[in-house]
Design a protein around this nucleic acid. Structure first.
Lengths: 412, 412
DNA sequence: CAGAGTTGCTGAAAGGTTTCAAGAAGATTG
DNA sequence: CAATCTTCTTGAAACCTTTCAGCAACTCTG
């Protein structure tokens, strides 16, 4: 599929200049089929999605008949006061309908509800929260929303929260400390019910401050040893041990550890577990070759694969243990495409056992964690903390489990 | 790794009863290694993660020295008033420091800032928003947070939002209409700056109401033809056409279309595109065998694979086009494990070209969409709508692109 | 040095909701 | 039928910020 315009134009910059009809030349018969509109061809783009270009962006004014009436309605949304007036009751009664419907008589309630419906009343949550003092929202600040592991955790969080009548906002720090800090500020200012977080680094001073000031915090997928908040984790050291023990058992001797950056707790613990396994087996620590990555992503995994495959066979480790499945999948993909056989030339163990691990080019041996359970448990701890007056902070630790597949065993 | 406790206990139910020391028996040497604590073994669990059990959950009270002091601090967070008093200035001045620092003299500002720091002042966003009337938050209500396609879109959204100084809250409807509705209510009540949404069904009456009441709405990955809001989409009909045209070109005649439920716009459009390609090629419509799924997930894909592989070879289609890559990956995995060769026995085309498509057991041919660009563009439209007084609603359409890999071509 | 600008700060009002003590109306009891 | 209870409803205060007109104290200008 050949490209025509190298990159898409910024649509906002073409506002109003777009023609409604199909005045432009159609880029390709098929492309013109369903979107009869000009294809805005711009000069070489600003570096967006460098590897691919998406031709023929089409912009047209949204349909509809009456182009005149717009930009209104909005303005003064009907408030509780207007509803009260319309229903012929007092403010207090409207508030009761909203918050304690059982105390207001059926007939009054009906009147009020009718008024709310006809005025399109939408409760102003800011005002509610300001006065009532409590939020019905809980946030999960994820380390990487692009990693299915964390979205599975998020699912568990949401299940538990919904069961308790709360809603969940997801935030993505994307392994960026600034973003994490920004979100924490934001959430604190929002006075959310509580914050679940998989933090970027071990330093939890910001988190301590948060909970000291009254926002419950639960650390997810990390065991934090202070008494300022709960944490729910999986024993990553053990996980690393399991992975390496498995590889040693298969006869591997020189093993790569692929992971980074080293500020991330999971990366450190899994590496420490790996070292411990080596030590227990009486092997020298140099037998663990560390390949540090800049992030826990597929792309970084590919980079590591490149480095690994570039080594002369004699110096190349015969197995690699990756700090997560994203890295492992990238590594796998790159190594295979560079001609290495997996597991014959290189055995690979991932971590997390995300859904895609089993569907990989070579099904991936991985260390499985109870993803949803992790999230659910964390949310439950948070709920307990904010409702139970004699809540005690806890550290819950789950045990990981090795799932052996073709990428190490090869028998399939 | 054998399990001991069939499932994890609900940690909140054990609150307070957990002992700090390792009084319990350790489940296995390795498991006890790093978490010296009782392993709470419960009876058969409540059906959580049915396929696997996670033994040896350990709960212990969070560490720390002084167990006495807790449950305080919190209470009366210092407000603007306290800061004003501490700094010896008026409320207005504190507010100015917060919102228009340039109008207050350096020395006063320093005083105020010092007071804020020492009191641990955190601005109350509810009050700010109530008075100022505007939120600095924008929300993206995703169809399925577990689908990397949408998290990539979300990344684009967040980039654009951050560039404009806004924050993004992610919400996951998870293909559940009730959840979607709940979140829309919530977001409207929160008076967010705007809502980006990939809706579950075509019926946008709820969305129309939202924007009529003043919350800008941009529909993402769906073209909506009314003049109530902007939309950013990829031409899904064309995408379906590309996929099927490719398969026809390879000589396939009877082709399965795997997707569902049929309330989801993407599912419908891609199918319609498939039909159109067939029609254009002069084939009868029955040559497209529809396998309707309950959701767009890997698990549903596996189910479809089961059904497909169960057909006698004579009646089985020789190719399958899946409404997204998740389905395709599940289908692929199941078919391969049931002994079908891909692409020889069954060629597969996915949709979205998520990162994992290329790393699959058989690298997946897929229809690629400009994921991040989609999100970025949507956010930019939203920003324009809420800042530009003569904003006009637009429909932006991008063109998809077929990426051919082994799952159809087989040459690798 | 009077007048005109500037600069920096103040104080009160406003924003939409919830809460709660207290009142009104109706039902029950002795 | 008077007294006591119940059941509903009311009105004002409070939540924490932001906004804005106005004021005081300076600094220029001619």
């Amino acid at each position: 599929m050949a490209a025509e315009a190298p990159d898409a134009a910024d649509p906002t910059s073409t506002t109003g200049s777009s023609s409604t009809a199909d005045t432009g030349r159609s880029s390709r018969s098929a492309a013109a089929a369903s979107a009869p509109s000009r294809s805005s061809s711009t000069g070489p783009g600003s570096g967006r999605s460098p590897s691919t270009t998406f031709p023929a962006e089409s912009v047209r004014k949204a349909g509809g008949r009456e182009p005149g009436r717009r930009r209104k309605a909005n303005q003064h949304a009907a408030g509780v006061k207007a509803v009260a007036a319309a229903a012929g009751v007092s403010l207090g009664t409207v508030s009761n309908v909203l918050n304690r419907p059982e105390v207001v008589s059926p007939v009054t309630r009906a009147k009020v509800e009718a008024a709310m419906a006809s005025l399109g009343f939408v409760r102003n949550e800011s005002a509610r929260q300001l006065r009532a003092g409590s939020s019905r929202i809980l946030a999960y600040l994820m380390l990487d929303a692009g990693n299915p592991f964390f979205t599975d955790v998020a699912k568990g969080v949401e299940d538990a929260a919904r069961a308790a009548g709360l809603s969940v906002f997801l935030c993505n720090s994307n392994e960026d400390a600034d973003r994490e800090a920004d979100y924490l500020d934001l959430l604190e200012q929002q006075r959310v019910q509580g914050v679940l977080i998989t933090p970027i680094d071990q330093n939890s001073s910001r988190l301590r401050k948060l909970s000291a000031r009254g926002t419950p915090v639960v650390v997810v997928d990390r065991a934090i040893d202070d008494n300022e908040h709960c944490s729910v984790a999986v024993n990553d050291i053990l996980g690393g041990e399991l992975a390496i023990a498995h590889l040693l058992e298969l006869g591997h001797d020189r093993i790569a550890y692929v992971g980074g950056p080293n500020t991330i707790g999971q990366v450190i613990d899994r590496r420490d577990g790996a070292r411990r396994a080596l030590r227990k087996a009486g092997k020298p620590p140099e037998n663990l070759i560390e390949l540090t990555t800049g992030a826990l992503t597929v792309a970084e995994g590919r980079g590591a694969g490149q480095r690994l495959a570039g080594l002369p066979a004699s110096r190349r480790p015969t197995a690699a243990f990756c700090a997560n499945d994203l890295l492992a999948l990238g590594l796998l993909q790159q190594c295979v495409s560079l001609g290495l056989r997996v597991p014959e030339d290189l055995a690979i163990v991932g971590y997390d056992d995300i859904e895609f691990a089993a569907a990989a080019a070579v099904p991936l041996t991985s260390v499985r964690q109870p993803r949803q359970l992790l999230g659910r448990t964390a949310a439950e701890l948070l709920l307990d903390e904010s409702s139970n007056p004699d809540h005690e902070h806890q550290r819950v630790t789950f045990t990981p489990e090795l799932v052996v597949r073709t990428s190490t065993r090869g028998t399939s």
